[in-house]
Structures are given as structure tokens and as C-alpha cells.
Design a protein around this nucleic acid. Structure first.
Lengths: 135, 135
DNA sequence: CTCGCTGCAAACTTTTTGCAGTCAG
DNA sequence: CTGACTGCAAAAAGTTTGCAGCGAG
């Protein structure tokens, strides 16, 4: 499920990547790159923001981490293991998490030969507060 | 379905918005803001990029246009009527469209009172080309 | 040893915002 | 008439990249 290994690269395990991955895993929801950066900076040895971005890119490619685009112009990340969907409000831009996964179908292969390893579902509409405001 | 009317604003129809909406509708796939801008610029009277962005924001709020975040750092737009899903390759970053909509469940209301009016599903994995490259 | 990874800072891209003038209703 | 919409240009925000040094394997 974690997708096949990248072409010819040999991955190295550094303490930075471990720290970043642990920070994402410790969070209860999706984090932005900056939030992750801020959390791993608290440690004795700081980690560069660029490193966070580069590590995230690697993790996403490996299928370990899942990105989420909630419409506020920044990407959020969470462990693929903690997969969940989001409800985004078109009124205020806010969002809530949805525990259930509404796309139960297992990864497979499409007609075009595309190998599906995961998915990302975002539901959008209006939150309770915005519905009231429109009344 | 096109969501309720915004709070206290009265919308105005300008030739710019009509042109932008027509450009999106004429496209066979999702367009980036810049692509839309380039297309509406061909006309005799050019439209400002900021206007394109502001109009898109309005259209999305109204539920007329649907955004798509395919992971390349820019947002793409298409008419909600032309709804379709995407397959994004984690290997090369490319993407293909999927005609079928895999989330047939109708809009409804969640426990938290959130009113769902639409959704956005992105499947990810590896395209045929990248699978071959990894072999 | 080798070569992928890191940090820093500069560069880039995309999107947003301020403001004054315009025009739809 | 009113105030929402527009254009321009400047600014912001988020992400990427170049490069030299470091260190995992």
C-alpha cells in the first residue's frame, strides 16, 4: 500500500526526518508545513523550513503522509494512517474533520493503467453558523 | 443546490464576469486562474487578473464553479456542471481526468449541522509511465 | 568514501489587497 | 444615486532552489 519504491534513489534516515514524522503523527489533525516547522523547532536543534518541505515531499511520494488542500492557500499534512475527510465551509472558509471515510473502495488499477494507492475527499457546503447568518 | 444566497450582498452582472464564466464553460478541463486570464485577454477589452481572482471567488461561493487542487501549487477551476474527479500521479505530478463521479451520495446535512452542497475527490497513485520507470 | 540530506537565504510563483474611478441596478 | 465591481500596481504568502558543508550507509 505504501506505493512502490522510488526509481534508483536510496533513502537515508536522518534525525530530522524522524522528528518531522513524529510531529505529524503526534498531531490530532492535518498540519501546515509552517505548523510542523514550528513544532520541530521547539527541540534543542532547530530544523530548517526547507528541510521540512523537502521531507514532506518525500513522505508524500512514499505514501506515508497525505496532503490536504482545504482552500486557504496552504497545504496540510497528516499521516496516511490517520486518514480522514474534511468538510469545508464556502461561507467562512473554515473546516471540520470527518472521522468516517466515505470512499471505501480499495485501491486498484484504472483502464488507463493508473495505479490508485489512495484518495482525498473534501466535502464542501456551509457550516451551521454561516447558514444561520444567511437566514 | 447552488447554495443559498450570500448574506446581505446584491450581486451585479458585469460583462467581465460573463466573459470569465463563458471561458470556463468553454474549456474541456479545469483551468488555472492564469489560463482563464489569458483566454479572456484575447478579447478586445482586457480583464485584470485581480478581477479574475475575485470573480472566481464569488463563483465558488455561489456553487457555480468548482475548484480543484491537484498538488502543483495552483488552483484550477471548472463549472460545477462539468463535475469530474482527478487521478494525480505521485511520481511525476501529472494528472488525468476521470469521467465518472465516484461519490454518488446526494448533498445532505451532517450531525454537526453542516450543509453539504458538493464534493471534490482526488485519487492518487502512480501513472502507467511512472510504474514502468520504477520496475 | 560517496552522494543524498541539510541549512540559510535569495528567488519565485501565485494570490491578495489598497485605492480611486466606473457603472449596474 | 449607491455601493459593488474593476484595474493597476504593490505587497503578501507560501513554496522552491542554489550552493557549500555534513553525515548516513
Amino acid at each position: 500500500m505504501p506505493a512502490a519504491e522510488p526509481p534508483g534513489l536510496r533513502r537515508r534516515n536522518t534525525w530530522q526526518r524522524g522528528t518531522i514524522l513524529r510531529a505529524i503523527g503526534a498531531a490530532s489533525c492535518h498540519l501546515t508545513a509552517e505548523e510542523i516547522h514550528r513544532r520541530v523547532r521547539r527541540r534543542e536543534r532547530p530544523i530548517g523550513l526547507a528541510t521540512v518541505y523537502r521531507s514532506l515531499e518525500t513522505f508524500v511520494r512514499e505514501g506515508v503522509v497525505e496532503p490536504a488542500y482545504l482552500g486557504d492557500g496552504r497545504v496540510r499534512y497528516a499521516l496516511a494512517v490517520n486518514h480522514h475527510e474534511h468538510l469545508v465551509c464556502l461561507g467562512c472558509g473554515g473546516w471540520e474533520s470527518l472521522d468516517a471515510c466515505l470512499v471505501p473502495q480499495p485501491p486498484g488499477r484504472t483502464d488507463s493503467g493508473f495505479h490508485v494507492t489512495g484518495h482525498r475527499l473534501t466535502l464542501y457546503g456551509y457550516c451551521a453558523r454561516c447558514q444561520r447568518a444567511q437566514a
